[in-house]
C-alpha cells in the first residue's frame, strides 16, 4: 500500500514538473504546446550528450556532475523553447487556434524525428545511473536516488512558484493571461514575458528529461510523446493555468496510475490515464483548482 503511494508520488513528481510548462504557457497565451513533451526528450538527450562529453572526468561522483549537467540542460532546453516560440508560434499570434495547434503538432514531429536523424532510432543508455541504496520509509522501499530526484523536483517547483506568484514577472504573466491587449497598453513587453514563460517551462521539462534519463537509464526520441500527454492530463486534473493546481494534478495522476496499474495490470496503465483525462474534461473541465470562467460574447 505505502509502496503504491510512494511509487505514485515519485512518478507524479515527474508529471508535475513537465506539466508546469504546459500549464504556464497555456495559462498565458492559451496555446497547447504539443511539442512540450519533446522538449523533455530534448533535455534527456542534451544531458546525455553532456555527460558523454564529460566522460570519465567525474569518476564515481555521480550526483554533482548530474546537478551541473542538469543546470546546463535547463539552460539549453529553455533556449530551445524560446526559439520554438519565436519561429513557430509568434508569427501566428492572432491566427485561428486551429492553425496554432497544427503548428504545434508539426513542431512536435520536427523535434522527434529531427532527434531521430541525429541520434537514431535505438534507445541510448544513460552514462550515469544513481546508486541504489534502499531505505525503508513507512513500509515502502525507497531508493536514495528516488529521494534525491523528488527533492530536486520539489525544489524546482518551489522556485517556480515563488517566481510566478511573488515577482513582477509573475504579475506580468497573469496580466497577459487576463488581457494581452490591456497588458500591452500598460507597458508590459508581452513578447518578452511570453518568451520567458517558454524558457521557464521548457527548462523544467529539460530538467525532468535529464532526471528521467538518470533514473530509468534509457532514452529514445519518442520518450516525450507519452509524457507530454500525461503532463497535459495532470495539468487538466489540477486546473490548467493554475500552478499549485498543476503540481497537485501531477501527483494525483501519479497516484491514480499507481493504483490503477495495481488493480488493472500494467498493460492498461495508459488507457487508465487517458480515461481519467476524459472523465475530468467531461465532469470538471476546469480541474480541481481552476476557476470557472464566464465567457463573454
Amino acid at each position: 500500500m505505502s509502496q503504491l503511494i510512494w511509487n505514485g508520488l515519485f512518478v507524479g513528481a515527474f508529471y508535475s514538473l513537465v506539466a508546469l510548462g504546459y500549464s504556464m504557457v497555456y495559462g498565458i497565451i492559451k496555446l497547447l504546446n504539443f511539442a512540450h513533451g519533446d522538449l523533455y526528450m530534448l533535455g534527456a538527450f542534451a544531458g546525455f550528450a553532456m555527460l558523454g562529453a564529460a566522460g570519465g572526468v567525474f569518476g564515481s561522483m555521480t550526483l554533482l556532475p548530474l546537478l551541473v549537467v542538469l543546470v546546463l540542460t535547463m539552460a539549453a532546453t529553455g533556449l530551445a523553447g524560446v526559439a520554438l516560440e519565436r519561429v513557430a508560434y509568434r508569427p501566428l499570434r492572432g491566427a485561428p487556434r486551429l492553425s496554432l495547434l497544427i503548428t504545434a503538432v508539426g513542431a512536435s514531429f520536427a523535434l522527434e524525428y529531427g532527434m531521430h536523424l541525429v541520434a537514431g532510432a535505438d534507445p541510448r543508455v544513460y552514462p550515469v545511473r544513481l546508486g541504489g541504496t534502499t531505505l525503508d520509509l513507512l513500509g515502502a522501499r525507497v531508493t536514495v536516488q528516488q529521494l534525491v530526484l523528488v527533492l530536486i523536483a520539489v525544489a524546482l517547483m518551489i522556485v517556480l512558484n515563488v517566481l510566478v506568484t511573488r515577482s513582477r514577472e509573475g504579475r506580468a504573466m497573469r496580466a497577459i493571461a487576463l488581457d494581452p491587449r490591456a497588458a500591452r497598453l500598460m507597458g508590459i513587453d508581452v513578447d518578452a514575458v511570453i518568451s520567458r514563460a517558454f524558457f521557464l517551462g521548457s527548462a523544467l521539462a529539460g530538467a525532468a528529461g535529464v532526471m528521467a534519463g538518470a533514473y530509468y537509464g534509457k532514452i529514445d526520441f519518442l520518450m516525450g510523446f507519452l509524457i507530454g500527454l500525461k503532463a497535459f492530463t495532470a495539468a487538466v486534473i489540477g486546473g490548467i493555468g493554475n500552478i499549485p493546481g498543476t503540481m497537485l494534478g501531477g501527483l494525483l495522476l501519479g497516484l491514480l496510475e499507481s493504483f490503477g496499474t495495481y488493480w488493472l495490470g500494467g498493460e492498461w496503465r495508459d488507457v487508465f490515464a487517458f480515461g481519467v483525462l476524459i472523465l475530468f474534461l467531461t465532469v470538471r473541465p476546469t480541474g480541481l483548482l481552476g476557476e470557472r470562467v464566464t465567457e463573454r460574447v
Binding site: V87, A88, I102, T103, V105, G106, A107, S108, F109, A110, L111, E112, Y113, G114, H116, L117
Partner: peptide, 9 residues
C-alpha cells in the same frame, strides 16, 4: 517524418 513536421509548420 522530420520533413513532414517542418512542412506542417
Amino acid at each position: 517524418y522530420f520533413v513532414f513536421g517542418v512542412l506542417l509548420i
